[in-house]
Design a protein around this nucleic acid. Sequence first.
DNA 1: AGCTGGCGGGTTTTT
DNA 2: CCCGCCAGCT
Length: 808
Amino acid sequence: MQDAPQSQAHGATASPVELNTPQAEAVAHVGGPLLVFAGAGSGKTRVITYRIANLVARERVPPWRILAVTFTNKAAGEMRARLERPDLLGPVARDLWVGTFHATCAKFLRLYPEAIDRTKSFVIYDTTDQKAVVTRVLRDMNLDDRRYSPKSVLARIHKEKQEGRGPADMHLDSYLDDAIQKAYTRYEAALKAANALDFEDLILSVVRVLEATNDGSFPAEVLRARDALEKKFDYILVDEFQDTNQIQYRLLKRLAARTKNLCVVGDDDQSIYRWRGADVRNIRYFRRDWPDAKVVKLEQNYRSTKNIVSSALAVIAPSPTREPKELWTDKDHGSQIRVIACADERDEGACVVRAIRDARDAGISPKEVAVFYRVHAQSRVLEEALRSVDIPYQIVGGTKFYDRAEVKDALSYLRVLVNPKSDVDLLRIINTPPRGIGHTTVERLATYATTQQLSLFEALGRLDDFAEDLGSAARKRLGQFRELMNLLMSEAKDRPAAEVLRILLAKSGYKKALEDEDTAESEGRLENLAELEGSMSDYETEAEARGEAPTLEGFLERVSLVSDTDKLGDVEKVTLMTIHGAKGLEFELVLLTGMEEDMFPYRNQEPRSPEEMEEERRLAYVAITRARQHLIVTHAKQRQIFGTTRLGVPSRFVGDLPADAIEHLETAAARAAGASGRWIDRDSMAAATSWRSRPASTTPSPSWRRPGGGGSNEQVTPSEWGAGPAAWRQGAAPPGRRAPEPGERFVDYDEAQDAQDGVELRRGSKVVHERFGRGEVMKLVTAGEPAVVAFFPGWGEKKVLARFLKLG
DNA sequence: AGCTGGCGGGTTTTT
DNA sequence: CCCGCCAGCT
């Protein structure tokens, strides 16, 4: 054991930037374990990057002996970019190991593939591939697929792997598990035969290497890999530690065993991935595992207004198990949190549109606006609302580029070229495009391969041995396919990846099949393939810039480990995403939609367990803390989802918001619905007591009937959101709109109902004003009594009380 | 071989 | 309601 480099750092920042006291402490702490509780918006990334810079610049730690682990590739890229800036480390930062758990492990395993019974060309199976393997395994075992669905079996295998157990030592909880254990064993064998690893394997295999003992039961190459890895890193930093699972933490403990220089940064309040194996206890019990750990809490929020911070705290406060900490900010209170009742999901969509337009008119760039929802199913209606008024948006999540069928096909071709043993990939392409190799033929090939213990590709090479089982046409076609693949393999040698793709698309007939199809859809597919080719070229450029040789293997690994959502972002569009997708991001304006019981907190069937409910609460905390200046929360009185209509009671999280930070509003349609009394189920209402007890005065109830009479005008006051230039679709700016003012009712002009009260004014109504002359109503508002915002040529947009207007 | 309609199932998602 | 999968038909 050798001690890691140590010395005292005085006021240790690597460059003259202000850090607050706890931030500076975290940066300066050098020897031994460090736990940083980093509240939302508390400058966590700054602490990590400065800490690394400090280690390299002051403590003289060689950069290649520092490992920084992040949760996503995007986070890794951003961290590296920051460190490479001249005010931090500059080009030296390139030698740092910065990456996700998976990418880091894959990088290491490529160096020592023999230690895990693979070759260096091993492929990484994604969820679809894994499912295909499990499906085959279960079919081979003739298992009842109602009891043993591929999905559930795979989920179980993942769970075992995440907790570090192989087939031999998996937990057997019920009689059903015996079959699962057999399936797990076969699954592992199939992956090994295919020279493939799944995501969990990347981590688990490295842990196995690190845990190898000298008792003679491990081959020399495993021990060699272990020794190399044990010595590899002097300092380890982990971001988003609250989202690590057991096996990841075990990996960290092993990697840091020699030096104890393990720094973990996270926020237990933002732990939202329990359902996929994250264990919040890793961060909560870190001090127990590392009694010497220095603990720092970053509690000053630099991101949000007081109203937002106090709302977030109010939502998370009821959580009984959290690490005590107080987020605070010295910013202003800012605007009130708006809680808007909508009639239904369409009304909510209209309301979102309204809010986005108001934001735009207040000078907020669309990329600073995000719309959150709990489940993707909510996005469709919101999309429709935005599309119908030409508001540009991007959706994060949903179907990904690399999941498109044509992209997967192309990648399967490429993977077979690199790793012919990959049966899943071969099965995908053997008859794609259609080349007359049907199910029966494939089954016969597979049967032969299984009995001879060969991969499908190897079996193809011995066609003659089982030709008697095949028709002559089938035989011929398999032969042609084999020739095609052999040709492609020889063509692929020493060629840039993008060129290999071009060749294979041409020679396989894939491109021609799409061209012949000649539909809008096939055209889109061709475009996607062109994009794939583009991303391969990009990869080559990047690899060369890093001084690495670009290889097809390298590209395929990147595809496996990098999601395309990683590169979403810097466009002038509103972002729509689930709250999970929003972790780590921040926006000027956040619209949090669907805030009803059973939507958020989400509930499918059974009541949620307390643990699940706590995670929902943390999710709400994450959502709120994404907002810098403005937060709008919407809920609908009824909602169509999954084909049924649900009645909506405002979420308990809405009830938790502090009264002095929020204002309650409702759309006209919601008010109409409320007045009719049809939609609110009294018992459900009683459940949301804090909601019901809210004073009636917070939701005044104006009438839209236009009274007669005359008097003075009411001018439009400057928007509370500030009046910056509208940076939206240039040239298409509609007549300006402003944000509602405090206390103003938020009634959507699109939805303003006139039937109820015999309203005569509506959006688009032509009106005459004594002073301003003829104008057009832009929207209905209230100023203690019915009013409108109307556009008067020569005067501009004015807010005037309805009673001063005549229809014209 | 390939299409079509019926059926079941539908948090959240990165890697 | 919307999607993906499978069986059964053409």
